[in-house]
Amino acid sequence: MCHFYIVYSPTLDKYYTGYTCDNLLERLRKHNSNHKGFTGKANDWEIVYQESFYSKTEAYARERQIKSWKSRKRIEALIQNKL
Rank of each mutant, 00 (worst) to 15 (best):
R72F: 06
E51N: 06
H3C: 04
G18V: 10
T39H: 12
I75Q: 11
Y8D: 03
A77M: 15
Y19K: 15
R72D: 08
N23D: 12
C21V: 02
K14N: 07
K36T: 10
K56G: 00
Q50C: 07
I79C: 07
S55H: 04
K67M: 03
W45N: 02
S52T: 10
Y16F: 05
D13S: 13
T20A: 08
L28W: 13
V7M: 12
Y49R: 01
T11K: 04
H31Q: 14
S71E: 02
E26A: 13
S68I: 01
R72H: 05
E76V: 03
I79V: 12
H35L: 00
Y5W: 09
R64K: 15
W69P: 11
T11N: 07
K73E: 06
S52K: 13
A61Q: 14
Q50I: 03
G37T: 02
K73R: 14
Y16R: 11
E26I: 06
C21P: 09
H35F: 03
L78V: 06
S71T: 09
N34W: 01
V48N: 07
H35W: 03
I6E: 09
K30N: 14
A77R: 10
K70Y: 08
V7S: 10
Q65V: 12
E63G: 15
I79N: 10
R29T: 06
I75N: 01
T20V: 05
A59N: 11
G37C: 14
H31M: 00
Q65K: 12
S33E: 10
R29N: 13
L28S: 04
K70W: 04
C21A: 05
E26D: 12
Y60K: 15
A59Q: 14
R29L: 11
F38K: 06
L24D: 09
R62V: 13
H3I: 01
V7A: 11
F38D: 00
L28D: 01
R74N: 08
F38H: 04
R72I: 14
W45Q: 00
T39G: 05
E76M: 05
I47D: 13
T20H: 06
G40A: 00
K36H: 09
